[in-house]
Design a protein around this nucleic acid. Structure first.
Lengths: 327, 327
DNA sequence: CTGAAAGCGCTTACAG
DNA sequence: CTGAAAGCGCTTACAG
């Protein structure tokens, strides 16, 4: 049951059917009525696969994102998706399950399926992937991340400054032994680490590398980090977790180990997801403008999809959101 | 840059290129080498849109899910997706934003884009949608839900029994005034409500309808329900929230209002998501076999996609997971 | 094993 | 305003 059958039954050409379907050209009311009637009666469902082939446009954008810090990424996704859907695009989401999983296969998948554009929320340094990304002719925007060597427009915060401000916030609450948990070896994490170090140095404090703990941005990972600190008898009076999810795990483990929050240990998160307002104690955090990031990333992509010049990056403001987990 | 250009440059026919690309037929080593070389050198990317059109198969399955109880639905999705991806399918996710949003547009989208099958995790009673679902020729499996009038295979728990067991669990901990929060007017919620009522009746307790509160399966909604109960001075010594996310909101509000958990009020959740083990106090809950539901739903869909007979529904076992939020 | 050709279901100049 | 026809990039009987 295609356009051809509809055409025959309505006694018109396929061109006419196509035209009433798409409203591309004026069609006399009579033919329009006839065609619409047949379509309705036959329960015709347009075939967008065929349509995409001739149009060379799929109205699909690909989104590659990590599954860690899910609540944060989901929210960005939700806001971006909303804008994209409004504009008639659908989103093919590729969720990179863990750090070991390669982005390669997802990138191939998106390219083979001819997505019109891409939003990349997952850092990668795989040279082959980088090469493919550069060569691809479709618009791409990096969201929440920065990939050195890739000149696509970015929509994100200033991670260095955000971590700097977060650290200062803890310092201003009298903390001196601040553990930092995050993913090192990635641009975002490393920049935040720099901000942390600078803030400590400026406060005249030495950087103790035993306080810099690797984490995977999951709740479990937060718990493990605290467990490690305590097991190794490393003294600390604050934890700065570089995702709210890790912070939740951190608080859980601290309470379990009999620590008081924040009197014994203050906890500061990162991201500003809704969950932080529902924990006990509530979570102080470095808040990203999640809604804005998602929406602006989508809007930038749409602009490029509409042929506008690839725009510059957008660095959005962060803020500190207080909570009872810090003094 | 299509198969045609590759063919010309390799001095073979397009048929041969297609064959080496798909490994469908034996191609002499020599031609194979020549074709592969050109493909590599040109950075050819196969066009799956064209491929889908002739094959009448997109290797895409549609997934319609609600955005409430996100952690729960995400986990089911994650497990289902894993199986599906292994089998070479990609997933087009449709996230229904709220109860007011219609499934209609997503259903149309999936059908127009010719998904090979569908996983439906969102209840709907829209008669037109139901009609379209019935008429559609593709395999569909209902996951975590039951839609009266639709005979597709289901993969879910016994919601009636699960709520019955949960209520009994609270009763066994000496609770008598159990508030129930959930979404009424949907099959899943209503069944659970029945289980709750039966358990109370069997215990010789009267059903107090002022304890049956509507909720939207979000954290915020859980908080609001508690707020309502307290504001209206309705006495209660336990809350049975029909999602863990609501339970988190419930606990938050209780603590904020100065109630002790569980001595003043016990809290029981539903779903068994990871978050419940990270809250303070930890959350007792009626646990669904999330991983199994996701995997089995995907496997059933794959079986049907492979032409196997549409199978019967699968009712999986639930369990009670203890936590310090209940006695 | 290999190729010429038809066809998948649409859209859109090009004529009329 | 309407239609005949070419073409989008593939796959696959059908011959050879």
């Amino acid at each position: 049951m295609g356009i051809k059958e509809i055409a025959k039954e309505a006694n018109v050409s396929v061109a006419t059917v196509s035209r009433v379907l798409n409203g591309t050209k004026f069609v006399s009311e009579e033919l329009q009525r006839k065609v619409l009637e047949v379509i309705e009666r036959q329960g015709y469902v347009a075939n967008h696969v065929a349509r995409s082939m001739v149009l060379k446009k799929t109205f699909t954008v690909g989104l590659i994102m990590p599954v860690v810090s899910e609540l944060y990424h989901q929210m960005i996704f939700t806001h971006a998706e909303f804008i994209l859907e409004e504009a008639g695009y659908k989103v093919l989401v590729c969720r990179v399950k863990d750090t070991a999983q390669s982005v390669q296969s997802y990138l191939d998948l998106l390219l083979e399926n001819r997505v019109d554009g891409m939003i990349l929320m997952h850092e990668t340094s795989n040279p082959k992937v980088l090469e493919q990304l550069k060569k691809s002719q479709i618009p791409i925007v990096l969201t929440g991340i920065d990939i050195p060597g890739l000149s696509f427009p970015q929509v994100r915060i200033d991670d260095y400054q955000a971590a700097y401000d977060g650290t200062k916030y803890l310092l201003s609450h009298g903390r001196k032994r601040i553990a930092l948990i995050g993913g090192w070896g990635y641009s975002v994490g490393d920049k935040r680490l720099e901000g942390y170090k600078t803030a400590l140095s400026e406060a005249g404090l030495e950087i103790d590398s035993s306080l810099v703990i690797p984490g995977f941005y999951t709740m479990q990972s937060g718990s493990q980090a605290v467990n490690y600190l305590i097991r190794e008898r490393i003294k600390f009076d604050a934890v700065f977790a570089l995702s709210d999810e890790m912070a939740v795990g951190v608080m859980k483990e601290l309470l379990e180990q009999g620590k008081e929050i924040p009197s014994d240990v203050a906890v500061l998160g990162f991201d500003g997801i809704e969950l932080g307002r529902y924990t006990n104690p509530t979570l102080a955090t470095v808040k990203q403008p999640i809604e804005q990031i998602g929406e602006l990333a989508a809007e930038r992509l749409l602009a490029m999809l509409n042929g506008e010049e690839s725009e510059d990056s957008l660095i959005l403001p962060h803020s500190i959101s207080s909570g009872s987990s810090v003094g």
